[in-house]
């Protein structure tokens, strides 16, 4: 199991557009990927789940991956977050 912490710096938090791209990224991998925020966890391959967390600016989130490509998926997700301006 792989685990990584992120601080969301984007002014608008994880809004619809970056959420879509995050889900698309995670869905390319076979591992189970979970996004946790304020004690709640959702499947990162579920757009409804990600949006229902309502992650805003300055939120500390944890992403966990479990499976054959757990390291790869976390690298890809981290890169996407940066590219979409969610993290520094």
């Amino acid at each position: 199991m792989e685990k990584r912490d992120f601080t969301i710096t984007a002014e608008t938090g994880i809004h619809a557009r970056p959420a879509t791209i995050l889900v698309q990224t995670a869905s390319k991998y076979s591992s189970d990927v979970t996004l946790s925020y304020e004690g709640k966890s959702v499947n990162l391959k579920s757009i409804m789940g990600v949006m229902s967390l309502g992650v805003g600016q300055n939120a500390d989130v944890t992403i966990t991956a479990n499976g054959d490509d757990e390291k790869e998926v976390l690298d890809a997700v981290a890169e996407t977050m940066k590219k979409e301006g969610l993290t520094d």
Binding site: A16, R17, A19, T20, V23, Q24, S27, V42, N43, K45, S46, I47, M48, G49
Partner: peptide
């Protein structure tokens, strides 16, 4: 196209 993508991701959502 990205706006439509958001809806495609929803309809593909396994949890939903």
């Amino acid at each position: 196209a990205a706006v439509v993508d958001a809806q495609l991701t929803m309809v593909d959502d396994p949890v939903l």
